[in-house]
Structure formats: C-alpha cells, structure tokens
Design a protein around this nucleic acid. Structure first.
Lengths: 143, 143
DNA sequence: GGAAAAGTGGGGAATAGTGGGGAACCAAAC
DNA sequence: GTTTGGTTCCCCACTATTCCCCACTTTTCC
C-alpha cells in the first residue's frame, strides 16, 4: 500500500488504551510499532520499516557528532515499542499522553511513512496556524 | 492510454458512493486511487502512478523545509486511499463531500494525470470565471 | 435484436471501535 | 511466608459502521 493517509478520532479509555485505525493496521509487516516523541505537539508512531533507517541515521549522527549524544539519548529514552492487543489497540503511557495533551480523544493522522497522534484541538490550531506560503509550491507538485 | 479526458456526471447515493466513469477505470494499474483535496473547489483523484512522485516530493519538502510540516500534515490528514467496489464505485466520506459542496451529483473531470471531482454547478461557475488572458498562449501550443 | 457493459439501489454479513471483567504478575506490607 | 494492593494483559460482549454481494435498469456495442 502507499503511505499512511487520513485522520481518525478514537477514544482513549480509562486504561490508556487507544484503537489504532484499521487502515493503519493493514500493510505493516508486524503488529508492533515504535512510539516516540519527535515533535512537541504530537507523538509519532513508526512501523518497523520506517524506524529501521531512522535508527541507522541516529547512530550515524552520534558517531559523527558526539556532542549530539545527549539529545539522541533524550529521544531514545522516551521511546518505546508498542504492540497491538487482539482488538487492535495500543497502550499509550500516561506520561506520554500528558506531554502532548491527550485526554479523552486521540487524533490519528497519516503522515506518509509514519503516523502522528494528536490532541484533536491542538491539531486544528496547528493547521490553522500553518504558513500558506508553501501553497503555490504544493499545488505545483500536483500539476 | 493517454491522460484522463472528458467529463461525466454521476449520482452520489445515500451511502456516499459514486460510480467512477468506466473510461477512467481502464488503464489504471490497480483498482485503487488516492483521494485528496488539493484545491478549495474540488477533490482530486490520483492513480498510484501519479501519486507516487507526489508522495516523494512531499517528503522531500518536509525534510528540507521543516516549517512546511503543518501544511503537509493538513494535506495527508485529509487524503485517503479509496478502492473501487465490484460495481466500480468509490466511497467519498461525508466530510470530504461537504468541503467541496458535493450533494446529489458529482462531476468527474479528466485532468490529464489525475481526475477532479466537482459539484456540477461550481464547475460551471469556475469555468465562466476563467481568465481569457491565457488563450493566445494555449492557441500557440497547438500551432 | 440481443448481449454485454455501465450506472444505481438496497439487504445482510463481517469488521471496527468501545467498554469492562477477571486472571496473572509484581511489589511492598504484615 | 503469606497477604494485600496495584498493574498489566488477555479475553468476552455489545453496537455501529462498513463492506460485500445480489438485483434491477439503462445504455452501448456488435
């Protein structure tokens, strides 16, 4: 299949579980993903196929720029591998939910090679605040 | 085959399904397309052959210009991979239909490498409002 | 004129999303 | 060593939606 596309709002239940959109389950080789916070506003969910090259590049970065080590450690420290249960849900730890403001609802956004998990309101705000200066370029991509 | 050409009006049924014009089915390698809103007035429907390079350029854009991320996310969030059912229909989600004003009828317009889906009235209005200043240039293309 | 294909409509089965019970596991307290 | 409390996980159950299939009509093509 092509990359992840679409957006879906799902409930976060009392136990911190969230159902992964069915269309995002299909096509990933296994039932597990890497959950990591790359940006301030959202969590990122990477299938192994997308994570593997990232892991390589992080090691490369540490080799070439040892002073980046603390920053990379900060990333990996908060990342974790999550698997879907029989109902197709993943468990998002409380601490991570707090970091990006997830409460009752989680918005899954397809972002080509990865999935982002947003608080719905934050996503709306972020979209509205997005810079339109790229619009002409984006339209030209489709022409 | 050559690019998509022609225009066809089809009904949107109670479930939000629309039959893809038969002539647009032929020639696309698979039975699935990317449905995405690039312009305000219409939906775009891209066969995989047209989508693949677009996806590549979008990722390239995010890599080189991180501040375009919100804008690209807005695009992918509203995009969707759709497959034709056994009758050759695709399902257009309510939300997307509302965005471009599709009610009972959908106008499929061939646009070379992609297909556009319009509300018939909006398309008429947009055509009438088109700027004639490009006429000489277009005529020269055919000369 | 007949056969095939295209467009339209709807019923029923399968799946997705959601909630909750209870076993298994671990840790500290008695 | 046993008990108690808290997590974690696995499984079952309910509901709504989606998807798949069948059927009918109209048009096209030979």
């Amino acid at each position: 299949m092509s990359g992840y596309l679409g957006s879906f709002v799902h409930q976060v239940d009392a136990k911190g579980r969230v159902a992964l959109p069915a269309s995002f389950r299909r096509g990933s080789e296994s039932e597990s993903f890497i959950l990591i916070q790359v940006h301030d506003d959202a969590l990122s969910l990477l299938p192994h196929a997308s994570w593997r090259p990232v892991e390589e590049e992080l090691r490369e970065l540490m080799r070439k720029q040892p002073e980046a080590r603390a920053r990379v450690l900060g990333l990996t420290a908060s990342a974790l591998e999550v698997s879907t249960d029989k109902q197709g849900r993943i468990l998002v730890p409380d601490r991570m939910r707090e970091l990006v403001g997830l409460v009752r609802e989680a918005l899954f956004v397809g972002a080509l090679n990865k999935i982002e998990i947003w608080d719905p309101k934050r996503f709306r705000d972020s979209s509205e605040a997005s810079d339109p200066k790229f619009d002409p370029f984006i339209e030209s991509i489709f022409a």
